[in-house]
Design a protein around this nucleic acid. Structure first.
Lengths: 267, 267
DNA sequence: CATTCAATG
DNA sequence: CATTTAATG
């Protein structure tokens, strides 16, 4: 069995002060994918940067205090690659991948946007460049005998079941028709060819959400979005035996506006 | 007897959360001069903006979150004036004065600077414009039968006794020779003609300091500066019977990097 | 509503 | 080292 967790920490320094370290110490995951680290590794306390028993690789953004992804693995990766070959996003702290035996695992932080802003244009440019990469990655990994798992904050809810308030958000970034169609392309067997593992295991439920705004009572009312995904190649997705959102992990002392999304993959 | 306090609150919203309100409730001062309010009045909670039993007048800076002075008086002022007639500083949140029977009282927040920066040039421009105003004010008030009291954060230590570390600070803004000479001009009977009331009552002591850096152990070591003054016309200064820094007011729960400076004036 | 940063002090 | 704002989310 192999347990993988993805979580957007919304600032690893802040999260570490509020309970992230305790959560990490308690987990028996073999891989943890982090997004929104929002720090360079030298800004992190030693115990946060390189926790006992983990190998860590950080891909910070060149813009200080922004984005930043990381991978924590119990075993040292055979190879690590930052970025996906598109110049604009190479140093944007949005993508890192690592090869483990039989698996390429990635931590993705897709840009968030707001309709009518340059940030939304950037999100769309990222999407346009990333989908072809996902296809390449799958083909290349298959040739090397590896499954692929792209975990992270994709900043798009796919279907109506993926956010509490879908009606009110049809014209908002994160649930725009073109974004939803793009995500359909990621999943389409004739296109990206990935499987949304959590949805595959829980086809009939609303959510489970993994992000709740800090505003109002969004968390208490479970008025959230499912925007953190495990996107896996079919061979790996078929081995998923359990998937859940660790809502409790951020409940007592909430250390991020996202909750960890964990999947157990069988051998 | 009439008690007057001046205190730089270093952000009234932050101070209010940490003990300013309790301090104000406990004081029996008749006038309180505030500096570095760093808020527009609509950003202040009602109980902070208009405390029970006080008349309040705010002179915010047009630059959001910067400077800002205020006067709290138990009796409603006969008149209030913001600024001192120099265009550059009219909306800079650095000067407000009010007429009370027999007294014009002012709250001043003189710019702070750093040697070699534009901020220091601004400080010097302020000083150049403000000294003539202080003379005019004294003459005008005398004609109206009023004493004058200009309280506030002057951001200059006058003599070696006015800061713990005077040797190390001879080339730093706040203790530059030209700044100290300017303050001598404020006090010179043939020039500004004001009296440094606290120093007049405590001629022989080091301090009492009214500002301590938040860095290191400055407060615990009393490694401070005396930069908050009561500058009074001689008639009023002669009536001062007691002067002290309310170090304890910021000790238990320190709600500013400055402490209130209080003087009791006899009738 | 929270995390960063930059400017200011 | 603390308070703000700004940008970002």
């Amino acid at each position: 069995m192999r347990k993988v967790t993805t979580v957007n920490v919304n600032g690893l320094r802040a999260a570490a002060k509020k309970g992230y370290v305790e959560w990490l110490t308690a987990t028996d995951a073999e891989v943890v994918c982090l997004q929104e680290v929002r720090a360079e590794s030298h800004q992190l306390a030693d115990a946060v940067r390189e926790p006992e028993g983990w190998h860590a690789v950080y891909a910070p953004s060149s813009a200080k205090g922004r984005a930043g992804v990381a991978l924590l693995t119990r075993r040292e990766p055979d190879a690590v690659r930052v970025g996906f070959g598109t110049a604009e996003f190479e140093d944007s702290g949005r993508y890192v991948e690592a090869d483990l035996p039989g698996l390429t695992v990635a931590s993705l932080y897709l840009p968030s946007g707001e309709v009518g802003t340059e940030r939304q244009d950037e999100k769309e440019r990222f999407m346009a460049a990333f989908l072809p990469y996902l296809r390449e990655l799958r083909v290349r990994a298959a040739a090397a005998g590896r499954e692929v798992l792209v975990c992270g904050d994709w900043n798009i809810a796919h279907q109506e079941a993926d956010l509490k308030n879908w009606r009110a958000n049809r014209k908002n970034s994160g649930f725009l028709p073109e974004e939803r169609e793009w995500l359909s392309g990621v999943l389409d067997p004739a296109d990206g060819g990935y499987t949304d593992v959590v949805r595959a295991l829980h086809p009939e439920v609303a959510g489970p959400y993994s992000w709740w705004s800090y505003r109002g009572r969004a968390f208490d009312n479970d008025s959230g979005w499912r925007i953190d995904y495990h996107m896996a190649t079919p061979g790996l997705a078929g081995r998923a035996v359990k998937a859940y959102v660790e809502r409790a992990a951020t409940h007592d002392e909430r250390w991020s506006d996202h909750a960890p999304v964990t999947v157990v993959y069988g051998d």
